[in-house]
Design a binder for these strands. Structure first.
Lengths: 262, 262
DNA sequence: TAGTGGTCTAGACCACCAG
DNA sequence: TGGTGGTCTAGACCACTAA
């Protein structure tokens, strides 16, 4: 039993600190197992409640995950690179799903996606960006992309109904040549994009849809596509789990790199 | 006492759900106060431990903050727009601190910053981006920007020592014309930038330096500046609290917007 | 000084799943 | 079926601060 100083710092914080140090140091590696609650109770001479408080700290920091009834484990990060520029502007490049598909397959894993199309009154963030009036509807293509059957990110694309009504954008199928191309054919070619990125904790619904562990924030990527006339014709809400994504943006003249892309 | 169904869903989750609904609905507005723990104990007929479990859920979602001994309050978000493009490429625009200063002052608030310069072996993320060998040192300018005396973000800029040795970049003062300009004068003009953005929970050190409440993730923005020869001459680690920042990036031809900038 | 949330104890029963 | 973590009870003492 390693003695805990009776400083002002709460006991559960001291326990959390020692475990955190063991994780960032060489004590417990990625995917490594932490001591059981019972072991910690004995080691520190405290009750289970206190031990659980310490573990909750690490869980909420995203360092540790509890996999009942196996125990607590150190989380491993695995970042896929997300390139909003590639993904979005190129009307004549490969469409987004193709690139996702290819880059995942390159790693020997299996990509998939679900598509669901509907007509809705969009949330405020979207309505504002599309300059819709209160109550005005839009077409939305909701996608969940998965890798090896596990959800990876959420991609909801909204289009003003007046523009896409009757086109294949409102059909619940993948659009092989890309929705951007279809918009262009309808006379609404996008020439500019505005990206908004915010970081927050997921909503319960997002946590459920993306099967996020506690302590995992999301990056929400709002994208607005404008025509040459400055009219917004597309607004996307992309929800990217922080433990699976990094966003890469290049500006000006940069040397080539060697990362996988999504 | 409102009855709780005895479904499989844990009681503390049901309490958290009801409080969350009250917050997202019209029940409790921003800065509004939640019932006290004692009130919740009575209302739901459970012990304080269970009530505290429910409140912890909301705190870790970033929805609620405990301000002892006043009570629990609904958090308010206040986003400042961060524009990595403006901030960084323009060798001949206003330097970053100037823009931060101006946009904060425009809101009638008081900006400030601390600068601290030292020679260090940089962390892995930086060393890799600067293509330094193991153990090689770099000059770092560490800044904490504050608004009304409260820390707002962390901005640590690293430069290869071989390049900036003896220049004013290694002096602990603000550089009025901008560090980019100085680099250019030294013959290392940047013509390209690579931005990496990741979202994660803060480290204990970051939580302390930025005075973050529980449930607040950070966006970490890594920036690498390259010369025309493709040589990295600057690597920045920017830590942006998720409850205070949104990142804005524009690509191609977009209509003007009306936001404050940082 | 009264009331708030923060910490900690000592116990109980449960669901789940690898052995 | 044994051991894991998940949930919940019933209490205690404490530090802080607004009234």
């Amino acid at each position: 039993m390693s003695a805990l100083r009776r400083t002002s710092r709460p006991v559960y914080q001291q326990i959390a600190d020692e475990l955190r140090d063991a994780i960032s140091g060489d004590g417990i590696g990625p995917d490594g197992r932490l001591p059981t609650e019972a072991e910690l109770v004995e080691r520190y001479g405290v009750t289970r409640g206190t031990v659980r408080q310490a573990l909750a700290v690490l869980v909420n920091e995203g360092l540790v995950v509890s996999d009942r009834p196996r125990g607590y484990f150190v989380r491993r990060r695995r970042h896929m690179t997300y390139r909003p520029q590639q993904e979005l502007l190129v009307t004549d490049g490969a469409p987004a799903m193709d690139r996702f598909h290819r880059s995942v397959a390159e790693e020997g894993r299996t990509p998939s996606q679900t598509i669901d199309v509907s007509i809705v009154v969009p949330p405020r963030e979207i309505a504002t960006r599309l300059r819709l009036n209160a109550g005005e509807t839009a077409a939305v293509r909701r996608r969940v992309r998965s890798i090896d059957g596990e959800p990876f990110n959420i991609n909801d694309s909204y289009y003003p109904l007046s523009i896409v009504q009757g086109s294949e954008i409102v059909l619940p199928h993948d659009i092989a040549r890309g929705a951007n191309r279809v918009l262009a054919e309808l006379g609404h070619r996008q020439v500019g994009l505005r990206h908004h990125l915010i970081s927050r904790m997921p909503t319960p619904s997002e946590r459920h849809r993306l099967q996020l562990s506690p302590g995992t924030p999301v990056t929400v990527h709002y994208l607005t596509g404008y025509t040459a006339e400055g009219i917004p014709v597309r607004a996307v809400e992309n929800v990217l789990p922080g433990d699976r994504h990094e966003v890469l943006i290049e500006d000006g003249q940069v040397p080539p790199d060697n990362e996988s892309s999504t």
